[in-house]
Design a binder for these strands. Sequence first.
DNA 1: GATGAATGAGTTTTCATTCAT
DNA 2: CATGAATGAAAACTCATTCAT
Lengths: 207, 207, 207, 207
Amino acid sequence: MAGKRLVTPRKEPSQRRSRELVDIILKATARVLLKDGYEGCTTNRVAEAAGVSIGSVYQYFPNKESLVVRVMERHQEKLRAVLSEHLLTLQNATLQQAVKTLVRAMLDVHRVEPKLHRVLMEQVPRIGALKALHAQHAAYEPLVVAWIESHRDQLDVPDAKMATWLLIAAVDGVLQRVFLDRPSSLDEEQLATELERLIVSYLRGVT
Amino acid sequence: MAGKRLVTPRKEPSQRRSRELVDIILKATARVLLKDGYEGCTTNRVAEAAGVSIGSVYQYFPNKESLVVRVMERHQEKLRAVLSEHLLTLQNATLQQAVKTLVRAMLDVHRVEPKLHRVLMEQVPRIGALKALHAQHAAYEPLVVAWIESHRDQLDVPDAKMATWLLIAAVDGVLQRVFLDRPSSLDEEQLATELERLIVSYLRGVT
Amino acid sequence: MAGKRLVTPRKEPSQRRSRELVDIILKATARVLLKDGYEGCTTNRVAEAAGVSIGSVYQYFPNKESLVVRVMERHQEKLRAVLSEHLLTLQNATLQQAVKTLVRAMLDVHRVEPKLHRVLMEQVPRIGALKALHAQHAAYEPLVVAWIESHRDQLDVPDAKMATWLLIAAVDGVLQRVFLDRPSSLDEEQLATELERLIVSYLRGVT
Amino acid sequence: MAGKRLVTPRKEPSQRRSRELVDIILKATARVLLKDGYEGCTTNRVAEAAGVSIGSVYQYFPNKESLVVRVMERHQEKLRAVLSEHLLTLQNATLQQAVKTLVRAMLDVHRVEPKLHRVLMEQVPRIGALKALHAQHAAYEPLVVAWIESHRDQLDVPDAKMATWLLIAAVDGVLQRVFLDRPSSLDEEQLATELERLIVSYLRGVT
DNA sequence: GATGAATGAGTTTTCATTCAT
DNA sequence: CATGAATGAAAACTCATTCAT
């Protein structure tokens, strides 16, 4: 604690090594998750895959769950990054553009390490971390809400928050299913178009 | 022996006892799943909760997984029953009625033993049985497709199958999220209304 | 007990059924031993293979071991029969004839259900019954001793009993090894010839 | 860490500890085999007898069988050592000496931990390791064959290999029986003498 | 800190045996 | 007697976690 505030960078090396070790361990965890699934992901296997002693794993992670949780969190961070990048351009977009952006963003999210994503979604018991995954949507909801409210006049949306929640839930639900069930017959372009139609018609309202 | 010759020719006692035992065991499994989650749902605990010897559990279920799978299947069957009941009335419905029916049906589905549903959805690794859950949606997709096609003139749907798939995925995604995250603030009535709007506007198309 | 002494053959049928059942069970035991080995030979499997309820097995056999013991005993009886048949002709034989007879007899013994023999020898822990197998040799030792003593003049044998024991042990040891190791290269005819030479030279003594 | 830098460069402590543990476990296995027989030799009992956690047993032995197999192998090694020692002197021996040597050697072999030997021979199902036991005989067969061939002129042996195989099988068979049946009446000295006679007469042939 | 041997509670699973029907 | 469902002690084996070095 105190160390962090010291000026001397002497202790840096050890800190760097720590970081690197944590990184190695987490990458190994992800690899093991991919290879052996959640049930097969034992701490010993992780240690071995990381080329690190089991003791070192416990130096940095209090228990098995924390390993997987951290892998999930890291994955979330990547997803969040992808989303943020897309949503930055949202502000001054037209309805069509905005919707397109949103759909592309969510599609792109599912392209980040899809295999790991799948394992995390399919196999990991819904421990605390998964909630975090959903909570993340909450993070950019305000953005969407803001956009809707600033385009009120073109839309037919009684409750912007409600509409946002619903749309995100719906789109995410659809994408989840696309990527988990992999109905390969489904053309991704077509899907995107239809999703856009779904959103636009909902926001515009029915005449 | 004696039993077979008695007045009660209703059912082979042995068969009845078996059925009852299986039932007791599965109910105990569900209870344990609720109380201790998937990881805590051990065969010994199930046996104890069922007030049955561990040997009896293995008499009817070859391994731990088969227990949970069977619980899932039973749950599916109940869900399927609820859905069927609702969808029977679909045929001659107007657009508004049909959509209302569909939404209510899917809401009702999530009201069948919601706690068990939650555990099964949240915690059970996505083993074979879960796919069955999704497959079940597929079972009633044709019904919806048929309805859409017989109402072509009132709708703006280029591809009935695609639209059906999308809508079901979206609605299910939304409901899943409602029931898993339990954002208690959300009013169910309001949600239903909005879902109906979502569907109707998508099907009607935008002018 | 009393029943056995009664004159009326009324109860015969049930007795006959019992015998048949015992026979069916033992044959099933042998089959299971062949198919699944000793460790895989469980009472339930035997019952199933016999097409009989497990309860019935325990009606006639107090425990698992007794099943296997009885199979061994039956096997012994067959072996004994083969031996007896051969050894009857021993009495007036010349040295060469006698030795030939003995060797052929012991070879023939190993041809009685060789697969079962092998399983019994290889896999069954040396429970009581195996001793019986050896004890059986003791049964016909006197015959050989008698023959040796009645041919004293042609032989150089200080102690007939000792010599008999030694020869039988040696021949049996050799045959056991032949049939367990199955060195297929070994020609059976040649082996028989050599065994005869071994015996004859030992009995005749060295000049 | 500290240990490695200390003065004792004899052996890696970890390695030594491992070796010792393996040794303790195997000795415990032998003890349990003696006390409870093969069927009673469970991994838990072995662990308890070794004063070691069951986990440690599985650290070094993948399953129960491997424990017994290793005990057998160790026993084999001891037997092999005894044999080698004796057979070294074979080369320049006369017929009488050579035969005496062989018989003594095989007698001595059966005096190495005879109780363990008995359990291993009697109770252990004929798993892989037992074949090893026989295979070991094969190892010194060439020595005997060589000796026979270099003494051809004094002997009457058409096929040295065949003769060797036969003699070893016979002698081993006899000894096995002696030590398994323990016919205490049998005088070991006398037995040795007779075995020698058996061998010598066979090799010399009958005039 | 790093190591990895050691731990042992806890799992799954088997199977000889009993006993109500 | 026959049945076979039910039993439960006990076996094999796993794996998160600790701790001496």
